[in-house]
Design a protein around this nucleic acid. Structure first.
Length: 288
DNA sequence: GGTACGTGAACCTCGAGGGC
DNA sequence: GCCCTCGAGGTTCACGTACC
């Protein structure tokens, strides 16, 4: 068997596969070759004792990503840039930049793993011993003292204001037909008419926070507002029905502005102060 | 002491902008 | 045109406080 592995020989080179498929293939292929699983290779005691490799991921308190980052950091001797996130979508469904990020991480990971399996240069017993010594003397690091967090119970009035705001007719439209059942924590089921929200949660929250700012009211934190909106059952408007009307109104507004500027010019406004360039841009945009 | 729930932080994804 | 980095948007999670 060759001492070095090539990228194209490895299942990771098939970029059309999802990361989960990669993990499955990598795990199975490693197990076939070595008689053990990749999972067991990533256990915290991998360098200190071979008797502990039988433990599995589920028993570890760390998340899968943390364990992975930990393993890669150890294997790369601190050279590995930690994986920031795990893809939950299939690779082909991700945006290009996101896909490139995961591919980059996969390549880097693969190189490190290959280097560990078939070290061609640089890795010596002395360096491994030095790494062990460093880990035993320096430990896992210092925890930063967490800041004091204070909690304030929201008053019913505050919650009422928020619900009233998000239930305004411009944000919530009741559908003329159908209904749904809200199940309360007390077990009581309430029948409410179906409603459609015209704005996504984050926009609603931004609008409410601006409103609070104008009225010098302290709003609940974002997460609480998200929870409240989620609890108030409503569908999200996804249809583009009415979009033509908005565009039509917008174009009409631009025409009106042009007429106003033109009139101001005839009344003696200096030509240099008339922003013709901006209207030219709008004209070009509207023709496309 | 148990639990409900408010909070900050983390997660996942995307887009802009720049280098080659 | 491809690749990469960085930062922000939108959402969810887990911790820890306050109340019963």
């Amino acid at each position: 068997m060759s001492r070095s592995l090539r990228w194209m020989d490895h299942p990771l080179h098939d970029l059309s596969k999802s990361t989960k498929e990669w993990q499955r293939e990598l795990t199975s292929s490693k197990a076939e070759r070595s008689g053990t699983s990749l999972t067991s290779m990533f256990q915290p005691d991998m360098f200190s004792s071979q008797t502990t490799v039988a433990s599995n991921w589920s028993k570890d308190e760390r998340s899968q990503k943390d364990t992975f980052n930990w393993a890669m950091e150890v294997m790369s001797h601190g050279q590995y840039s930690p994986l920031k996130s795990q893809a939950s979508l299939n690779l082909e469904d991700l945006q290009h930049s996101t896909k490139m990020y995961y591919i980059r991480q996969a390549r880097l990971t693969f190189e490190i793993v290959c280097e560990s399996i078939a070290p061609s240069q640089g890795l010596t017993i002395y360096k491994i011993d030095a790494a062990r010594k460093y880990a035993s003397t320096h430990g896992p690091g210092q925890y930063v003292s967490p800041p004091k967090i204070t909690h304030l119970r929201l008053s019913k009035q505050k919650i009422h204001y928020f619900i009233e705001f998000i239930s305004a007719p411009c944000y919530l439209q009741v559908v003329g037909f159908g209904s749904r059942h809200l199940k309360l924590s007390s077990g009581l089921a309430v029948k409410v008419p179906k409603a459609i929200r015209t704005m996504i949660a984050s926009r609603l929250i931004t609008a409410y926070n601006n409103c609070c700012k104008d009225n010098s009211i302290l709003p609940p934190c974002r997460a609480t507002q998200y929870k409240t909106i989620k609890a108030c059952a409503a569908s999200q408007l996804k249809s583009l029905h009415g979009l033509d009307n908005y565009i039509s109104d917008g174009m009409e507004s631009i025409d009106t502005l042009k007429k106003v500027v033109s009139n101001l010019g005839t009344k003696g406004l200096q030509t240099s102060k008339v922003p013709y360039s901006k209207f030219r841009h709008l004209e070009i945009t509207s023709e496309e």
